[in-house]
């Protein structure tokens, strides 16, 4: 995909079909009205176009640019800066394993390795059925629930390799999956719409899984003179003794290596990721 093309520049992206466009324009108008300056609506609008197509397409970029009076280059510059905007078609469920230091040490690395093997995909790749996109993610502010897995940005706390494998099996089989903190899963596109600022209208979504998680309450319980309950760690009904240590398991921190090579210098392993119209 990094073939150097010296031919004609790409033609402008096609527009959305008229009905889609009309619907998104109404949404965009609502988003823009929330801000004193229209450009502030760009991040929500990029979430909005992801809710339509599952990733940021050239058509989506053109739409955002048109709504805000920006060039497609300006919009692309922003969309490629942020990690939540996908650049290629991806699965219904974005499964992110935290491999920042604390979660990695507590078992996130092992979970990520086992999921890669179990699903037969690498980082930021999607299963053949289009259900699951696997990626490693950075710290998601849930270190007291480590190791943490996020699916469509809902919390799956206190994971083990076995619970994580069960989780992706359930996702692929189309079984309803519920997080430890968050609402019953909806698809990535539906999640993107919430991120664009449109509240989740599903009954029970706000109150799902109740109040604070168990770790959040530990200090409060101690302060009230209660003894902390033993840590509940086997989510989703999994037996806890399920993680055979892998002697000499590969743990070199190489998972974050650049994945693409610069078009201008294919020999350089550190080149930027190619983008826009690959």
């Amino acid at each position: 995909m990094t073939d150097v093309s010296l031919g004609m520049p790409q033609l402008p992206a096609p527009e959305y079909p008229a009905d889609v466009r009309a619907r998104l324009e109404a949404d965009a108008k609502e988003v823009i009205a929330r801000y004193p300056d229209s450009r502030s609506a760009l991040l929500p609008l990029l979430h909005l176009v992801q809710s339509e197509e599952g990733y940021v397409t050239r058509t989506g970029v053109r739409f955002c640019a048109g709504q805000l009076g920006l060039t497609t280059a300006e919009v692309t510059a922003v969309s490629t800066f942020y990690s939540m905007y996908r650049r290629k078609p991806s699965g219904d469920y974005q499964v992110g394993v935290c491999t920042n230091t604390l979660c990695a040490v507590m078992g996130g690395d092992e979970i990520f390795e086992e999921l890669k093997e179990h699903l037969g995909v690498g980082n930021n790749e999607t299963t053949a059925d289009g259900k699951v996109t696997l990626e490693h993610i950075e710290c998601n502010a849930a270190c007291d629930f480590a190791p943490v897995v996020m699916v469509n940005w809902e919390f799956f706390d206190d994971q083990t390799p076995a619970s994580a494998k069960q989780l992706v099996d359930d996702l692929q089989a189309g079984r309803q999956v519920e997080p430890t903190r968050g609402a019953p899963l909806c698809t990535y596109k539906e999640t993107a719409r919430i991120l664009a600022g449109f509240p989740d209208e599903r009954p029970g979504a706000v109150e799902a899984t109740g109040g604070a998680g168990h770790a959040s309450l530990i200090g409060l319980r101690l302060a009230k003179g209660e003894t902390p309950a033993p840590r509940v760690v086997a989510p989703r009904g999994e037996a806890p003794q399920d993680a055979p240590p892998q002697p000499g398991a590969e743990h070199l921190s190489s998972h974050d290596a650049p994945q693409e090579t610069s078009a201008s210098d294919p020999a350089n392993p550190a080149g930027p990721v190619a983008e826009e119209g690959e």
Binding site: I137, W153, A183, A205
Partner: peptide, 23 residues
């Protein structure tokens, strides 16, 4: 007369509750 909450995007359960609390 206008305030913003800039919430990181990767925490949808919290976003839901902020939407609801503001409502």
């Amino acid at each position: 007369s206008h305030a913003f909450i800039y919430l990181r995007g990767e925490v949808v359960p919290v976003l839901r509750r902020l939407h609801e609390a503001v409502r």
